[in-house]
Each structure stands twice: as C-alpha cells, then as structure tokens.
C-alpha cells in the first residue's frame, strides 16, 4: 500500500509512505533527489545510467537507514537564499579582513562570551543560524541553548560596547536572512519582529 503525502496530512510534505505497522517506511522525496544529485556530482559525469543508479542508491539508503518521518520545517525561498548567500559572502570577506587585522594588532584582546537571544524556535532554523554565524564576524559559537533559543558566542575585543552591539546586530541579521531563506511562514513572522521587543516580553 502506497500513500502520498498529499492524501494524508500526517506525513511530511513531498513524501511517500508504504508498508504497514513495523515495516512501514516513509520516503522523503526531496532527500532522495538531493542524495541522487550528490551521487551524480561525485561521479563527475552526467549520464542517465549514473542518474538511475543515484536514485536507486538514494532510495536504498533511505530504506536502510530510515529517518523519523517528521516535518523539519525546511522551505526553500530562492530569492531569500540568494540574498543570504550574497550577505554571507560579503560578511565572510569582512570577517576575514577583521580577524586578520585583530591577529596582527599587538594589544591584548579582551574576549568575552556573549549571550544572544534568538527569535526563531524551530531546531533546523537554530542550527542553520548557528552554522551561518560561525562563518561570519559575529563570533565563534560556543553553545546553543535550545530551550531558550539562546546563542552563546565568543567575541574578540569585548571591551568595546560598540563591538558587542555590532556582534548582536550581525547575529540577528544573519538569523533573519537564514529564516527568510529556509524558514516556514510562522518562523518568518517571528523573525520579522524587533529582537529587543520580543526579548522584553
């Protein structure tokens, strides 16, 4: 018996379920597509045989190592992804230059661990934000508290209040762009709010 996600609301979007009870398996089709794309890219040549093999391997992988059938809340917004990529590129450049400067300036850095409350709540978005922040000047992520959605980052030059403010703003900006690129509608509404007001409640 095969069920498409369009017919049964308890399945995650774009997935197929078949089998009963203990043998029930849910195939996440975007995951299959993604694995097949990786397969073709790793082989380095595009041919139909390659593509078919990739799909077969992807399906076998998904059947052998089933993930829990949960909706991760991953949505793709092409325009948002483009904006996120451009912002990250720009930020990586800035942060590379800044860290390089900090390396070659000879004064003791007073570093600190700064708690930054985030606005998004879904685990995937928190993870994506943390990964994005790690690559940009906000700081190195030390800890992410899921219950309170708080990100703890290590900031160089923390004795300058302006630098702390910049770090916070940078993290919030990254968060907003990340969620606008990958988030569901509720998450986007959440990150559109002013972080300080949200925090006051």
């Amino acid at each position: 018996m095969i069920t498409w996600s369009a017919r049964s609301p308890e399945l995650p979007p774009y997935s197929v379920a078949f089998g009963h009870g203990r043998h029930r398996r849910v195939l996440d089709l975007p995951l299959v597509v993604w694995l097949a794309v990786i397969w073709v890219l790793l082989w380095g040549t595009f041919s139909w045989a390659n593509l078919v093999n990739g799909v077969v391997v992807a399906v076998l992988l998904c059947l052998a190592f089933p993930l829990p059938p949960a909706d991760l809340g991953l949505r793709l917004h092409p325009w948002g992804i483009l904006k996120l990529l451009l912002y990250l590129l720009w930020d990586m450049w800035i942060s590379g230059v800044r860290v390089t400067k900090q390396i070659f300036v000879d004064y003791p850095h007073r570093a600190a661990v700064l708690a930054i409350p985030l606005r998004c709540r879904s685990e995937l978005m928190l993870t994506a934000t943390a990964v994005a922040v790690s690559n940009v000047p906000g700081g190195s992520v030390i800890e992410l508290r899921r219950a309170t959605a708080t990100l703890f980052v290590h900031v160089l030059d923390a004795d300058d209040p302006k630098a702390l403010e910049t770090a916070r703003r940078s993290v919030w900006r990254t968060e907003e762009l990340t969620v606008r690129a990958f988030g569901s509608r509720e998450e986007i509404a959440r990150v559109s709010a002013d972080p300080r007001q949200e925090d006051a409640t």
Binding site: M92, W93, V99, S134, S140, L156
Partner: peptide, 15 residues
C-alpha cells in the same frame, strides 16, 4: 588562547 584561536582557525580558512 583556544577560543580566540578558533576565530583565526575558522574564519579566514572558510574564506
């Protein structure tokens, strides 16, 4: 120290 070094180890490397 370690945490400052992790800045130097990750950011310029990624770029």
């Amino acid at each position: 120290e370690v945490l400052s070094r992790s800045h130097a180890a990750t950011k310029p490397q990624a770029l």
